[in-house]
């Protein structure tokens, strides 16, 4: 199962991002585990300054906004 981290200190957009990724994954039938990561140390480790950010398999994919549905789909298919 793919692990997807959503980095962010608990703002509304971070929750929305996590929900959106879960929903897109469900639509595509790809099993994922979405983790919300709010620890400043982890956010620092990835060098992220604008949240929400998305990390898949330890790679920073996106930062600064709620990602677009199509881009989420691309990430899920690409990293399968």
């Amino acid at each position: 199962m793919k692990e997807i981290e959503v980095l962010g200190s608990g703002c509304a957009k971070c929750v929305k991002t996590a929900e959106l990724i879960q929903a897109v994954a469900n639509d595509c039938g790809i099993p994922v585990r979405v983790i919300k990561e709010s620890s400043p140390e982890v956010i620092l480790k990835h060098g992220v300054m604008s949240t929400p950010a998305v990390v898949i398999d330890n790679r920073l994919m996106h930062s600064g906004s709620v990602p677009d549905k199509n881009r989420i789909k691309e990430w899920l298919l690409m990293t399968q």
């Binding site: 980095l7 962010g8 200190s9 608990g10 703002c11 957009k13 971070c14 400043p40 956010i43 620092l44 060098g47 992220v48 300054m49 604008s50 949240t51």
Partner: peptide, 16 residues
């Protein structure tokens, strides 16, 4: 522009 919910990551990004 940045949302106040980003102040921690911004602080750490600058500091590091």
């Amino acid at each position: 522009p940045f949302c106040s919910c980003s102040s921690i990551p911004v602080f750490l990004g600058f500091t590091s």
